[in-house]
Every structure is written in C-alpha cells, then in structure tokens.
Design a protein around this nucleic acid. Sequence first.
DNA 1: CTCAAATAATTCAACCATTGAACAAATCAT
DNA 2: ATGATTTGTTCAATGGTTGAATTATTTGAG
Lengths: 378, 378
Amino acid sequence: MTARIQASSSVPVRQSSVRAHNLALVLQTVATSENPISRAFTAAATGLTRATVSALVDDLIAGGLLVERDPAPRSGAGRPAAGLALAPDGAYGLGLEINVDYLAACVVDLSGQVRHRVVTYADQRLGSWETALTRLAELAAFPGASGAALAVPGLVSADGIVRVAPNLGWQNIDAATVLSEALGMPVAVDNEANLAALSELRAAGGRPTFGYVSGEIGIGAGLVLDGALYRGVRGWSGEIGHLPVHPDGRACRCGARGCLEQYAGQEALLRAAGVAALADLPDDADLGEAGAALGIALAGVVNLLDLDTIVLGGIYGPLLPRLLPGIERELRQRVLTFDLAPITLRAAALGADAAMRGAAESVIRSVLDDPAAFLGRA
Amino acid sequence: MTARIQASSSVPVRQSSVRAHNLALVLQTVATSENPISRAFTAAATGLTRATVSALVDDLIAGGLLVERDPAPRSGAGRPAAGLALAPDGAYGLGLEINVDYLAACVVDLSGQVRHRVVTYADQRLGSWETALTRLAELAAFPGASGAALAVPGLVSADGIVRVAPNLGWQNIDAATVLSEALGMPVAVDNEANLAALSELRAAGGRPTFGYVSGEIGIGAGLVLDGALYRGVRGWSGEIGHLPVHPDGRACRCGARGCLEQYAGQEALLRAAGVAALADLPDDADLGEAGAALGIALAGVVNLLDLDTIVLGGIYGPLLPRLLPGIERELRQRVLTFDLAPITLRAAALGADAAMRGAAESVIRSVLDDPAAFLGRA
DNA sequence: CTCAAATAATTCAACCATTGAACAAATCAT
DNA sequence: ATGATTTGTTCAATGGTTGAATTATTTGAG
C-alpha cells in the first residue's frame, strides 16, 4: 500500500511525494498524446519547467516506461525535438475473467494494445471453484506481467473475496489469494461491470463521469464518477439489476418483486421473444418492454446522479438500436432535467471483451497513476 | 482558484503545494480533536516531524487560525505541552437560506459554533427575486465573515446560477453575483439538500459515504461519497423526488407518473391524512404509503450506490419513527445485500437549520481544507 | 533538596525537488 | 554563411522537510 497524494487526505506530504506526483503527471501527459511529443511540449502542457520535465523524463526512460522516438514532423525553425512515447515493453497488465460459460485472459501493454488473448468456453458451474481458478491460472501463464486483475460476475468486497456470485454458485471465495499464489504476482478482484466501465474510460473521451450498464444473465452497472470508479462503502455498488421498476410486478430470484432484471435481463428478453438463445432472437423481436424497463431504471439513476452519458454493454451493445426507443421515451418523460441538457446513450466500444480488457487496463492504470511505486521496486 | 494537491490531477506540484497540504493536515488534526492537543501529539498523529509541525503551527497561529490554550491535563513526567485549538475568532462562515416561507442567515465560527442566527418568516413567492435577495442581504449584514454560501430549493449549476427553483418560481437567477455584490464577499450557491448533507458530515462520525434525504414540498437528496459531496456532471444530482416508484401511478407536476414526490412529498402526506398543515397531522396518521414509497426509492439508491447510512431530514426527521416500518420492510425485501450488512437509518441531527448550517460550514470547510489560500490573502 | 528521567518544543545543518537563467545544440530562412 | 528560433541541459538559488542536537520544564526517587 503506497501513500498517494490527495486532497484532504490524512497522509503527510514530503518532497518525494512531489516527485511521485509530477512523475505521474508527465507520464500521463505522454500517455494521452496521440503522437510522440517533445519534452518542451510536455512542459508547456503540464505547467512544469523544461528543466524539471527533462529530469523526470530521464527517470522514466531509465525505468523503462518511456522511450525516445521520432516525433511528429513539425514545420518552422529550431532544433528538432526528441519524441517521447510510452515504452512498448515498459509494463504489462494481465486481465482475467471468469464467467458462467467461459474463462478468458489477456495481456495489455502500457499503451493499451492487446498483446495476448485467450478464451476457452466451458460451463464453469460443472466443476469446483478450485478447478476453475487453476484452469484460469494455467491459461494465463504469460510471463512478465507486473500485476493482474480478475473480473467476476458477483459481489466482491474490498479484500478481494468474492462474497456472492450467484451464476457461478460461489460464496466467500478468496480468489485473490489463490490466484496471486498461482501466478506469482499481485491479483486484484473486482466486479465485471466495474472493470468494464473502466475499459470505457479510455473511449469516453474526456468524460470522467458516466454509467456503464452491463446486460448479461444479471444486469450490473459500473459507475465512473469524477474520473474514478465508485465502488460504494463495501464495494457492492452498481446492482442496477435489482432496482425496482414495477414494485408489484414479477417475482425475482432475489426475493423481491419487479426488479429490472425480470424485464430486461437476458432470460426475460428470451422469454418475451419465445426463443432459447440470443442467436435465435429474430431481427424484428419486440424489445419494447425491456427498453421501457431500462428507461425507468436509468431515469432514476440519472435523476439521482446527474449523468450525461450512459454506455450500454454486454448483450445490450448489439441490441441497442432496438432498445433505444423505449429507453428514450421513458428518459424524456421521467428525467427532470431532460429539457435542460442532453443525455448521450451509446453502445460499449469493446463488446464482450470489455471486462477482461478493463481488468488488464486497471493494472496498467495503476502503473500510470503511480510510476514512482513501479520504478521503486523495478 | 488555487491549485490543490490531488491524485491524478493535471496540475503540477511544487514545494509550496507541499506546505499547503501539510498546513491543512495540521489544522484538520487540531480541528477534529475534542480537546486542545500538543504539537508533539499532532506530529505523531500526522506522521510529520515535530520540527515541521512547530513551523506549520507558527504559521497558523500567526494567521489567526490556531491559538494556544491550556491542554488537557496529563499524568507523568516531562515538560507540559502547550495546547493547540482552533481560534474562536479565526474565521467566520456566513450561511444563507431562502425557501418558500422564510429567509434565514447564520454565522458559524471555525469550530462550528453558531455565533448569530436570524430567521424571518414571509412568503417569498409574493415578491420578486430581487426583493428576496435584497432582504436576505440586509438580514445577513454581519461583518467579518470570510465568505458565504446560499442554500436554494432548486437546481443550481456550477457557476452559481439558479436554473430552476419551482417552489420559488425562479428561473436562471444569478443569485451568486447579486449577493456577492450586496455583501462584499464571495458567495457560493448550492442546492439545499447538498448543503444539508454537508452539515451532517460532522455528525456522521467518520462515515464519509452516506445519503441525506430532505423532505419538504419537494424531496431532495445530498450524496456524500468517499468524503466529498457528489454534485453530478452539471450540479443537478440528488433529484430523488422524481425517482419512479410506481411507473404507472399518479401524475406528477414534472410531467411523469409515479414519482416519489407524489407518495412521500409534503403535499402527499397531508392529502393522505386529510389535513391542511403539518401541525394538524394526528399522531396516529397512517404514513404507510409514504414509508413504502420511500423504501422503494431508497432500495434503488442503496442497490446502486452501496450506502450503509441514510440520514432523513426536513419533515422526515420528526416523522421518522412512523415512516421507519414501511421503509425497512421495503429495504429488507429489495436491497440485494440486506442480509450481508446492515443499513443505518437515522434522523438528521440539525433539523430545520441543516441547510443553512451546512452552507455556513461549507465556508468554514473551505478554510480548513486550504488554509494556505486563506492565509495568503489575509 | 537535589538530581536523574522524561517529555515538549526549538534550532540548525543536510537533503531534496523545483525554478529560472544561462548555455549548448540543431535546424530553418534569408 | 549567418541570424533567428526552438529544444534540451547545466547549475546556483529557493523553499520545504528531516533528523539530530539542544533547550525548557516537569515528575519522581533517593
């Protein structure tokens, strides 16, 4: 656990924290630039002096996080700049995902490029949780990653223990410890919707506050508020599938009535269309009920959190065009500020890989957020 | 606008930022202590050295924010400590509130003590908004405050403009500019529920994540997430009164159907009891419908945000015992994690003064959060 | 009563990170 | 070729924290 600089924290700050912060600032400035950029431009963009940027860049190059490249061509006089870019082999993040019918792993480099990707399809409910985690660790035996994160369809507490994963039949499984021993690196565990939301942060283009809704058998949401994933008091935020949309409506497996899941979950969609699998869903299937239910739930979310962007992923991604009329009708009617400002609804950029990619990117993000910690132990 | 130290911000950090941060750290350590504490204890509590704490304390005393007092008596040998405490006259925050039937103002000192308090009752809808703000400025003519904040029952955007305040009949009123000119000090404007939530932060006792629900003619919520007020993308978060609880139910003045306000707002409560004013509400009035509606809405909020504490204020404070059965029944049934961890429901500590007090405390909080900025211009 | 132990607070040299100005390097335009 | 221009580095100065030494003040034991 490393001390981070933040407002109103109870941690003292010393000169080394200043360096840690500015190191991250420079690294992120380079990371968010499309093309290689010069030290001078980085100085101008960050507000630091060129002298300081040079010193920080020296550290980052020595630590293998940045490399010098040919810069984007520039017109005009002056000494040509040396371009700075993220090192292609600076650090790797291992992203893991376990779900009802597949195991998946991928390796992502500093720039977000996927270097490896493996998926094996098999019903994970048939074997024990030990078997599933062992198989996943074998699958993910890529050397060189500096950390890993696992996406799980369930409630995960802050210590990495999977409290409940109904569709896997898991309860109180310490997946973090098991996997970190098997893989020999630190492993974080998080809810799939949370990690999928993180993967959309890059695609969100400077919008640091949005909601990500993941439609699967259950429905989860990941909330990115003011640039950071909001996890809730115990890490159980985003259970949008059990928002009451018709309080006296259909009985839900959770024991309540009228939960969103009963109207817009995968099983409800299939039932309404009278088919057995998503692939059988006819193009003209009526998704009005699901769209309306989603709209009612999202209207509540927007009224409460004042979001201007909602990203729909999982099965909702490809179905979005047919869900949109129902969602928009309810939002227009029920969101108090609908006439004051628009709400953007869009499909997730990464599709089915979102959670796994988000897991890998969360590792990369921790390096970009605190390069000093990474360099310190390298 | 002062540069603040925070994680992943795009602002460079220099030595002066270190001092600013540690100054705040020391001041807040003293502020949160019950009794006067020594420099040595402050050093141990913050992790700074005694030498640094002494230097920082010198600045804070010179700037009038701290004073030396007799410390709490201590047993054992050794040189006696000099006690440090917030200066009673170090800074004052002016809290303002405008509502349908009253204007109010108060002055709060650094330690949160109320030094002045004025309330005048009159229907603010009868006059113009200029009249109301002028009257409020006259009421609040206490000299010496270092800033003010105004609580308004409506949507306020980040620039301090009141976009809509339906019960006042206001639209696009630049209350911040008008009041800051009249009072000769910076004036922040915010939603009443947001500021009321802030006033409960002190009473929340180390719980930095909770929801505050304010029952009035409308119903608003203030969300304190991870220690900070969450305002949303445009500052319009917390419109819990228009969460859909019975989507096909009663028509609401907002144009939608089944909003919480139609079942648990003040007018709905009075209508259900068949009385004209809150004071006429019989002790045995049936509040079951309102409690259930609140429970349905709050279940959604808790499922989404994983809150463990909800504070009920406004008219709900005194009525809480009679609302609780209905709320708890719905929460028990509908909150997915109800069996995993308890949810605390409690009445607001400050009652009707909450918003005004929160406004004043927000000014104080800005001094405690950034004493360097305060000292710099003093 | 005296002195040692203990605790609080201050002083000061050393250290560390940023700054700003001067300087060196490399290119373009005339 | 030469001057203008931009990039990147060097270095003394500045400002902030640290840690050790020092001073200040009290308690308790002999």
